[in-house]
Structure formats: C-alpha cells, structure tokens
Simulated assay, not measured.
Amino acid sequence: MSYTINGVEKEVDDYGYLLEPDFSEEAVQVIADACGITLTEQHRKVVDYLRTKFKEDGHTPNMRNLIKGLQEEGDLPEADSALLFDLFPDGGAAKQGCKVAGLPQPKGKGGY
C-alpha cells in the first residue's frame, strides 16, 4: 500500500502510516479520503495541532495530552475523548488523527 501525494508515491508501514512525514495539505486530503473521512474544521484543528506538536517535539501526544492541549492551546475547547473518537473512529485522534495528518505511526506509551 502507498499514497500518491502531489504526484509522488509515498511509502507506508503495514498500518497505513507514512514512513516519512508529509506536511502538505494534499497529504491530509488523500489520506482522509482513503480512511473514508470527510474533513471538517474540527478535523483540521486536530490535524494542525498534531503537526505542530510533531514539529516541536519529534512525536505526537497521547490521547490524554492531546485532549488537554486542544482544550488549552489548540483552539478546540470542546475537545474530549467522545468528540475525538467521533472525528477519528478508527483508533481515535491520537492514532488515526496522526495518520490523516501525514505523520508516522505514533510510538505508543513509551514514546510520549
């Protein structure tokens, strides 16, 4: 499996995460389409926040820290686990959100 983004075929791991991050808007749209997600403004806020944290920290936050960050600094004060699972039903925003954001697979508990 791979994604074609801006005319370039991008390699993914066994779970569909890009091996190398792609911060283009086309990446978000291509991956969201492949996941069956119709992007809304709330999706975009989550994706933007995940990308910012990845650029700053070299990894993305776990679900608890993602919710807290979105509420406090991510311009999504209504963020809670129910909303994030509604937006990203296949694993939540901490997982599927990273995939849609064009980021590599999150490292899991030890990587935060």
Rank of each mutant, 00 (worst) to 15 (best):
S2E: 14
S2A: 15
S2F: 14
I5Y: 12
N6E: 15
N6W: 03
G7M: 10
G7T: 11
G7F: 10
K10P: 00
D13C: 08
D13M: 10
D13N: 15
D14E: 15
D14S: 12
G16C: 08
Y17L: 08
L19C: 07
L19I: 13
L19A: 04
E20G: 00
P21L: 06
P21D: 11
F23Q: 11
F23H: 10
S24F: 07
S24Y: 09
E25M: 10
E25D: 15
E26M: 07
E26N: 05
A27F: 05
A27Y: 07
A27M: 02
V28F: 08
V28C: 04
V30H: 08
V30D: 05
V30M: 07
A32W: 03
D33W: 02
D33Q: 14
A34L: 02
G36L: 08
G36C: 07
I37W: 05
I37L: 15
T38S: 13
T38R: 10
T38V: 13
L39G: 07
T40H: 09
T40N: 09
E41D: 14
H43L: 09
H43W: 11
R44L: 14
K45E: 12
K45C: 03
K45N: 01
V47C: 01
R51W: 00
T52I: 01
F54M: 00
K55V: 06
D57Q: 12
G58E: 08
G58P: 08
G58A: 06
H59K: 13
P61D: 06
N62P: 00
M63Y: 02
M63F: 03
M63P: 00
R64C: 04
N65R: 11
L66E: 02
I67F: 02
I67D: 06
I67R: 03
G69N: 01
G69S: 03
L70F: 05
G74S: 10
A79Y: 02
A79N: 07
A79E: 01
D80K: 00
D80M: 01
S81M: 11
F85S: 08
D86N: 14
D90N: 13
G92Q: 03
G92R: 05
A93I: 02
A94D: 15
K95F: 12
K95M: 11
K95H: 13
Q96L: 08
G97C: 06
C98P: 06
K99V: 04
K99N: 10
V100L: 09
G102T: 08
G102R: 04
G102M: 11
P104I: 05
P104S: 10
P104V: 07
P104R: 03
Q105G: 00
Q105S: 11
Q105T: 10
P106G: 05
G108R: 08
K109C: 10
K109H: 13
G110V: 08
G110W: 11
G111P: 00
G111W: 09
